[in-house]
C-alpha cells in the first residue's frame, strides 16, 4: 500500500503582519487544500504583544495546526515538538474519520475504551513513523527577527536531525519573507536534507514590511506546483484527503 503525504507549513515569526491579505484567511485556505499550518512565535526577552499573539494562535487554529510561543533559546526543542504534534494531530484526524465511517457518526478516539484506544494509537504511531512528510518552512526575516536568525538556522538543522531519524521520507523547502524582489523568496528548494541551508541563510537581508498573508498564499502555490509536476511523473499520487487506508 502506498501511503499518502503529510503536508505542513511551518511559520516562524515574531509578531504582527502589516502588509497584504489576512494571514488567518490564508491559513484557512491552506487547510482547504489539505495543508496544515503550524506557527512558532519567537520572543526576545520581553513578551509578545496581544495582537501578535492573537494572530499567531489564529493562523494555527484556522490552519488546523499547532502554535507555540517560545524564547529564542528554546526554539530547537519547540520546532521539532510542534512538527511532531501536528503530524500526530493530522493522522489522528484521518483515523477519527475512518472510525466514523466504521462505527457511526460521532465516534472519536476518546469514545473508545482505553484498551481499544491503545491499539488505534499504535496505528497512529506507526503511520507517523513511516508516512512521507513535506514541510515548507516560512521564516519571517523582517527587522526584529534579524538577531534571532542564527538560532532559527540551528533549530532547523535540529528539525532535520529529528525527522530524518524517521523511517519515512522527508522533504523540506525554506522560504523567507519579505523577499528581495517579491513578498516571499525561496532560499532552499525541496530537499530531504536541511543541512544544505548553511550556505544560503547568511545571505538574508532584513527589511521593514511583514507580509505574512501574501507569503502564506505564495507558499501554497509552491505545494501546488510541486504536486502538478509530480503527478505528471507518477500519475496516481495519493493524498490523505482522498485516500482510504
Amino acid at each position: 500500500m502506498r501511503k499518502g503525504t503529510l503536508k505542513q507549513i511551518l511559520l516562524i515569526t515574531d509578531g504582527c503582519s502589516n502588509h497584504g491579505e489576512d494571514p488567518v484567511a490564508m491559513a484557512a485556505l491552506a487547510r482547504e487544500q489539505g495543508i496544515t499550518v503550524n506557527v512558532i512565535g519567537v520572543l526576545d526577552k520581553d513578551t509578545i504583544d496581544e495582537s501578535g499573539l492573537r494572530e499567531i494562535e489564529g493562523i494555527a487554529m484556522s490552519g488546523g495546526g499547532v502554535s507555540q510561543v517560545v524564547y529564542a533559546k528554546q526554539l530547537s526543542q519547540t520546532v521539532q515538538m510542534v512538527t511532531r504534534k501536528a503530524m500526530t494531530q493530522t493522522l489522528q484526524g484521518v483515523i477519527n474519520r475512518e472510525l466514523k465511517q466504521i462505527l457511526g457518526s460521532d465516534v472519536t478516539m476518546e469514545d473508545l475504551p482505553p484498551e481499544k484506544r491503545g491499539e488505534v494509537m499504535e496505528v497512529v504511531d506507526e503511520l507517523g513513523e513511516t508516512v512521507e512528510l513535506e514541510v515548507l518552512i516560512l521564516v519571517d526575516t523582517s527587522g526584529s527577527m534579524k538577531t534571532k536568525l542564527p538560532t532559527v538556522k540551528e533549530a532547523l538543522f535540529d528539525l532535520s536531525l529529528s525527522l530524518n531519524a524517521r523511517i519515512g521520507d522527508n522533504h523540506f523547502a525554506v522560504f523567507v519573507f519579505p523577499g528581495k524582489r517579491g513578498d516571499v523568496e525561496k532560499i532552499l528548494d525541496w530537499t530531504p536534507k536541511l543541512e544544505a541551508l548553511s550556505t544560503v541563510f547568511p545571505k538574508l537581508t532584513s527589511g521593514g514590511l511583514t507580509p505574512t498573508g501574501p507569503a502564506l498564499r505564495e507558499a501554497l502555490t509552491y505545494f501546488k506546483k510541486k504536486r502538478s509536476l509530480r503527478s505528471l511523473i507518477s500519475g496516481d499520487e495519493q493524498y490523505f484527503e482522498e485516500s482510504s487506508m
Binding site: E129, A165, R166
Partner: peptide
C-alpha cells in the same frame, strides 16, 4: 528500536 526518538532532553541528546 529503529524508529525516531520521541522525546529527549538536550543535554543528554547526542543530536544536540
Amino acid at each position: 528500536k529503529g524508529r525516531a526518538i520521541k522525546e529527549f532532553t538536550e543535554f543528554y541528546d547526542r543530536g544536540y
